[in-house]
Design a protein around this nucleic acid. Structure first.
Length: 299
DNA sequence: AACTTTCTCAACCGCATTAAT
DNA sequence: AATTAATGCGGTTGAGAAAGT
């Protein structure tokens, strides 16, 4: 497709609009409408490109625009819609009267995204962030072992390292178990196998399944490959919003008796992280531990 | 009070899609 | 059917404001 960018034309003004320019644009649109944005600037006496005029009108000057802070209801609606539509700002804006896609996008990027992250949710998938849980686990393990090192200084460094490695192996197994829990074909035998490997006791409940349902695992040839889900449109197969606001991400994590809608969806995968295999003598440490600054300090 | 850092949001850029020829 | 023009959309930027030191 060949198309000359309208804003490349030299001499056209860019940057913030002045009140005079705003007035010219509003006056022209009120009189003649905006049949052709391309032709509008000349007709309205503006030294701007049509694209800039359209943006100024749709994002700022349109009379039906609601300005000011977002209400709690609007905030919740955006969260709900984003969980279903992803970054389809225009589609989200069409469900919130008076708000523009640009405004919603800005509000999402500056407020809601941070809020979700702070609450431990992945802002793209609206699922709990398992990497945070595992990072926390690794910190606990490292701290516990360091304390042990200090308390029992008579033990040799090599012995302590061996125990740390043992803990790391268990952490890896924990990760494997979490991935297994996502698989629909997951069996009790699998659970028993992993559980015996880690010498740990696990509670099999819906909460764990919900926590881990944004990842999938495909172990093969001694190396387990965890594929992290970060697709931006987890429900993109749904053409329009048809669910009530009860599908908010906050609610996803609250109910352990009724499975959340998202548990039926395995989003596409785009990135990979290799894990050490539990049967491979575990000479390689999990990256999560190796990259830990605390671990680097003591190593 | 002065300076630095962080936050906010209007506006821009470039690609995708749609419409017209 | 192919090409061109117009529009729509989402990601990103940067200037000004606010907050922190």
């Amino acid at each position: 497709m060949g198309r000359s960018p309208c804003c490349d034309e030299s001499g056209l003004k860019k940057g913030p609009w002045t009140p005079e320019e705003d007035q010219k644009l509003v006056n022209h649109i009120q009189k003649y409408g905006h049949a052709s944005w391309r032709a509008l600037p000349k007709l309205a006496g503006l030294n701007r490109c049509g694209k800039s005029c359209r943006l100024r009108w749709t994002n700022y000057l349109r009379p039906d625009i609601k300005r000011g802070k977002f209400s709690k209801e609007e905030e919740q609606t955006i969260l709900d819609l984003h969980a279903i539509l992803g970054n389809k700002w225009s589609a989200i804006a069409s469900h919130i009267p008076g708000r523009t896609d640009n405004e919603i996008k800005n509000f999402w990027n500056t407020h809601l995204k941070k809020k979700l992250i702070q609450m431990g949710y992945d802002p793209m998938t609206h699922q709990p962030r398992t990497d945070d849980i595992l990072t926390g686990l690794s910190h606990l393990i490292v701290l516990a072992n360091l304390k042990e090192l200090l308390d029992q200084h008579h033990q040799s460094w090599e012995q302590s390292l061996a125990r740390l490695q043992e803990e790391a192996i268990q952490l890896t197994n924990l990760q494997s178990l979490q991935q297994h829990l996502v698989q629909p074909q997951f069996t009790e035998a699998d659970l028993n196998t992993v559980s015996s490997m880690t010498n740990s006791t696990f509670m099999m409940n819906n909460d764990i399944v919900n926590v881990s349902n944004d990842t999938s695992v495909s172990p093969s040839n001694g190396i387990g490959t965890v594929q992290l889900a970060n697709d931006s449109t987890p429900f993109s197969h749904m053409p329009e919003l048809k669910t009530p606001s009860s599908c908010s991400p906050w609610l996803f994590s609250c109910s352990s008796t009724t499975p959340s809608p998202s548990t039926h969806v395995v989003p596409p995968v785009t990135s990979e992280v290799s894990l050490t295999n539990v049967d491979d003598n575990c000479t390689i440490w999990p990256e999560i531990l190796l990259e830990d600054p605390f671990f680097k300090m003591i190593s």
